[in-house]
């Protein structure tokens, strides 16, 4: 229990990951699936940034030419997650575009209805 209290960000991130994962897998509505995907990605970003955060230290911005590496949090995870956000945005964009196309072609965005339609 103490471990959970000490690392509540990580625990929250894993729970969010599970929620997003299950929504992505089990829901039939495309929009809900996309929301689930975003929750999943965001939870990973949270986990990653919490790895790089050091309590009591500042954001790594140089002010007035002052350089002291010990005063800053680890900037690499934030930088990596910026890339991760770009990737997530592009995947979400493509998914939404595909959902529009799906609605045009099938007239619904519920995947179970689409799977039940007889395809020739």
């Amino acid at each position: 229990m103490l471990m959970v209290q000490n690392s509540y960000i990580e625990v929250g991130a894993i729970i969010l990951f599970g929620i997003g994962f299950m929504i992505l897998l089990l829901n039939n509505n495309m929009i809900k699936k996309i929301i689930g995907m975003n929750i999943m990605d965001t939870s990973i970003f949270l986990l990653f940034i919490s790895i790089g955060y050091i309590h009591g230290k500042e954001a790594p911005i140089i002010v007035d030419g002052e350089i002291n590496a010990m005063g800053y949090v680890n900037p690499i995870p934030s930088g990596l997650m910026l890339t991760g956000i770009v990737v997530a945005v592009s995947v979400t964009g493509l998914m939404l575009a595909l959902t529009i196309k799906l609605y045009e072609k099938y007239g619904t965005i519920e995947l179970d209805e689409i799977m039940n339609m007889r395809s020739d």
């Binding site: 990951f17 997003g20 994962f21 992505l24 897998l25 495309m30 699936k33 995907m37 999943m40 990605d41 990973i44 990737v87 995947v91 493509l94 998914m95 595909l98 959902t99 196309k101 799906l102 072609k105 099938y106 995947l111 689409i114």
Partner: peptide, 17 residues
């Protein structure tokens, strides 16, 4: 194609997650 691509993209994002 749209259906297949959605299936692929969804499982793929799951994998990359």
């Amino acid at each position: 194609n749209i259906k297949a691509a959605i299936k692929y993209l969804m499982l793929s994002t799951l994998g990359s997650g």
